[in-house]
């Protein structure tokens, strides 16, 4: 029984989180000595579909029905669950992206499958099928056993490395339409800023808090993020005060992130904020208060005033980039 992976695209382009999901699904297929089948829905170029082989997919089912060009979770869930049945796949993998979160539970219900949402590691299959996932908003992990025959796993972005050692995948056109009742929701508008790095996918995140004193002081934070190719984030008080949009709020009641590098500027490190950043690989803290709790979970720290340190850090990054 093959493993099926759904390869999400944004405006016809696969994202890093998609390649992570394919690499992860490949490893699960290897654990079970089976094949990996990918399913792509939407308008994706054949070059990109063939290239899914690099990440380990043997076969790609390509659904390019105009009705399904835009993401409607209800219809996509029908298509993916049907494909799983037709291919005889008992494990379905997808990214725990914003869209993936609206999709995995629906696929789970259709396949009567247990859903491991937000997986952070490969399943253990020693008698029981268990998956480690984030819990308590990043304060802990839970090991979940999926006791059902079919299983759905959604992978936390940035938690599994992209592996490229495959070849070219065979692409098959796959006819699918979803059910008539799947199309009640209609998309009116999609706004995607192409110049901004998306926060949940970002390798580097530059985040700032109340220490910046006001929204007018974000220029230097934006400059640093721009230089590092980083996404912007902020603490809860900052988004509550309307200095920055809610979509940048990282923490227990905001977004949980797991970048390679998280730079926190003028954030004291309340337990709710730390929950959202605990799975970052490296944490840098810049704060003028040496007693700030954030230093206790940081890898690197600078005790100093953000208004002095950040411009110096920008200069140092510029110098590094010029010499690199």
């Amino acid at each position: 029984m093959p493993v099926l992976v759904y390869t999400e695209n944004a405006d016809g382009k696969f994202k890093k989180s998609t390649f992570e999901a394919v690499s992860y699904a490949r490893a699960i297929a290897d654990q079970n000595n089976t094949n990996l089948v990918a399913i792509s829905i939407g308008d994706v170029s054949s070059d990109q579909l063939i290239a899914l082989g690099k990440y380990g997919a043997e076969k790609v089912l390509n659904v390019s029905n105009a009705k399904l060009k835009n993401f409607i979770n209800q219809a996509y869930a029908s298509v993916i669950a049907d494909a799983a049945k037709k291919e005889g796949a008992d494990i379905v993998v997808l990214s725990n992206s914003f869209s993936g979160r609206g999709l995995a539970p629906r696929i789970g219900v259709k396949l009567q499958a247990g859903v491991a949402d937000g997986a952070v590691a490969l399943p253990e299959q020693t008698g029981k099928f268990t998956v480690k996932k984030t819990a308590f908003s990043g304060k802990a992990f839970a090991v979940v056993e999926l006791t059902s025959i079919n299983k759905v796993i959604s992978l936390t972005p940035n938690s599994y490395k992209v592996v490229e050692n495959g070849g070219a995948a065979t692409v098959e056109d796959y006819a699918a339409e979803g059910n008539a009742s799947d199309f009640k929701a209609m998309i009116k508008e999609i706004v995607r800023s192409t110049d901004k790095v998306s926060l949940p996918d970002a390798d580097i995140v530059v985040s700032a808090g109340r220490g910046l004193k006001g929204p007018e002081n974000w220029g230097m934070v934006e400059e640093l993020a721009g230089l590092l190719g980083a996404a912007l984030a902020c603490s809860k008080p900052v988004s509550d005060a309307g200095w920055r949009p809610h979509s940048e709020h990282v923490g227990q009641t905001g977004i949980a992130v797991s970048p390679n590098l998280y730079i926190a500027i003028g954030i004291s490190g309340a337990i709710q904020h730390l929950a959202g950043v605990s799975s970052s690989k490296v944490i840098v803290v810049i704060n003028k208060d040496p007693e700030a709790p954030f230093f206790k979970v940081a890898d690197y720290g600078i005790v100093g005033d953000a208004f002095e340190v950040v411009p110096k850090l920008i200069a140092a990054v510029k110098e590094y980039k010029a010499s690199a």
Partner: peptide, 12 residues
């Protein structure tokens, strides 16, 4: 609804 790097507006 939120999407990576943007938003989507739906009616139903």
């Amino acid at each position: 609804r939120e999407i990576e790097g943007g938003k989507e507006v739906l009616t139903t």
